[in-house]
Design a binder for these strands. Structure first.
Lengths: 198, 198, 198, 198
DNA sequence: TACTAAGCGAGACGGTACGTCGCGTCTTCTT
DNA sequence: AAGAAGACGCGACGTACCGTCTCGCTTAGTA
């Protein structure tokens, strides 16, 4: 047994079940309604928990929602496949799968906070960064292998590839994009470019 | 005196100054804080108006914010220029210019609502549609003129072109994109495509 | 119309019915339970009133209870009768009548406060002073008329006469004193004195 | 080792120091503030004790306060002296001495409870009964010795004699009675009676 | 010139949620 | 088994907004 393990604060330890019930309640309520409708009292009631038990763990609604969001962090991003095209499609698909209905709703609730609170911004970055980093590596590998242009603006490419899916998820950008084959359509369009072949 | 002019309810007419003061107060408060911090009482106080005067005109916070947003609708989209590239860059720049600091903040407040309320969704569409329609026409013209590929997926192209800027505005997607030349970078990247020239 | 009458604060005036309902609820709850059991929420609920409506008028439970007590102030003390004995008995009876069941309960709730808060002490004095003053005058008149001893310690006499009844009301001093004829018994005992006639 | 000594529950015995610290804390807090301000948590904190240690001994605040009060029970009432007058004065003085500042505060906290809870009523009786019984015996002895009237209403006399002092202690009845010689004033007034000598 | 009718700022109304604190119980480890 | 510590579900605290409702006053068109 390590020294760290023996360092335990006195008194009754905090209930793990309460933690889980609270986070679960937050996710359920966020998926049902607005961020404004996410009442601390509703969370407590749905979790079968006293309000104090929530405030003992989180400073307020902001921090609570942030942690709920963090709990959605999916499995590690995804290893790469064979061709650049397949890898990109797979990554975008992974984004879709990972961010199911509920997750999309929860994340869209967070957007206004990201613009304001640096903490939420950092949180958001930490959630999407693995996905983006994986995509960067695919792109860099493509450049090295000669599949992609040498002068590729990688950061713009990442944003360009992810844009349509995120816009659609968050803003229902256009009905025409509400389509399972969106990843392929985006990757094909972007890879080939808009310009006519010379 | 025309019939329309005589169709006029009796009693004191509603104050136009109140309308303006209320909308202005909403925008100011939204730019300062969260949507949650936008209380009707704060709006009334800042506008120097009674609460009843607000509720006489709008049914609640939702409708009020929607109208405030509508008031930000910029000038008609923008006529087209010469080449496809220049037109697209101009359109994206227009988007930047039109959506100043305040507008970006206000719009990001709206994102969570768009996912839920069809009314807000329609509102959002009506705000961005002119810009998108202009872009579609530029793209279609490019296809006709042979500048762009014939099999272009127009809707995806629009999303792809707008994505980076919107992500950056709303989510501060990546520091590297916080750049005045973002429109050119995006247009150049997307037009040429990522793939290496054959 | 006087200038004072035209001085009216703007906005909707406070509801008199709310005032009455709140005070009534306080008295009812105090008569039922302890001062500790007198919850502001219970008062609001029983009065059919929002909590804010109470706090708009009173700073807290203390002030509220004080005002409720004040509302019990009975009719002016009582004019005097013929003999000193009859007058004293009548005054003590008046005390009994005026302070019905409910009043006794409410006042006993106040005792601990009187010891501490000068405000409550003043309030208590203002409630019982008329009764005591009436009694003093009866005694002084008795001295002048020769019915009472010339060297009478008036303040002690007043306390002596009122003591038994108050102790019984507040502390259920002794079962034997729970008797309708207590005023007579006290007055007769005190007037004649305990000492055997010489 | 005696049989009595062996009758002993197993495990760690209860700490006597805890008992004392708790009672002491209750008295201190009661003397400082209201009964409402006497929170179990404050008692535990001031006594340096866990809340469970309190609840292991007392069922709640009521019982705890009752026991704290019991702990104030002074020495056995007082043996009688020579004349009736001297004995009564001594008894009243004993009451003053016994009930110091702190005791008066604590007892006044109890008044509202006495009216309601039979348990507190019994408690109160048990605290003051010895004093009253001693006074009754003095009075009875006076009757037998011929010092006092044969038809004396003993219970009323006891209440009459104790009344002023108690009213003054609990309710600050009148400034004029805040006087060290109050016992003499009361006894002299009551013994002689108010009526003028015939 | 008066009358009618609606809008106006102000603010009280019955509610609901806030975040805190104390209740009496429980669960942990230590003595 | 009792101790200190402190988390637990609960419910009251006093505050802030909600959306509605009076108030007395102003501002128009109509009589």
């Amino acid at each position: 047994m390590t020294a760290a393990a023996s360092t335990r604060s006195p008194g009754r330890p905090r209930s793990v079940r309460a933690d889980e019930a609270i986070i679960e309640a937050v996710l359920a309520l966020l998926a049902e309604g607005t961020l404004e409708a996410l009442t601390m009292e509703a969370v407590a009631a749905r979790a079968g928990v006293g309000k104090a038990t929530i405030y003992r763990r989180w400073s307020g609604k902001e921090a609570l929602v942030a942690d709920a969001l963090r709990s959605l962090k999916g499995p590690p991003p995804v290893p790469a496949g064979r061709s650049v095209r397949e890898d990109l499609v797979a990554l975008l698909r992974h984004g879709i799968r990972k961010r199911d209905q509920r997750t999309a709703r929860v994340m869209s609730c967070l957007v206004p906070e990201v613009r304001r609170s640096p903490e939420h911004q950092r949180l958001y970055q930490s959630l999407v960064e693995p996905q983006r980093e994986a995509m960067r590596q695919v792109l860099r590998r493509g450049v090295r292998s000669g599949e992609l242009r040498a002068d590729l603006d990688i950061e713009v490419a990442v944003a360009v590839l992810n844009g349509p899916q995120l816009l659609q998820k968050m803003l229902r950008w256009h009905p025409d994009l509400d389509d399972d084959s969106l990843p392929e359509r985006v990757v094909d369009t972007v890879l080939a470019g808009l310009a006519a072949a010379t």
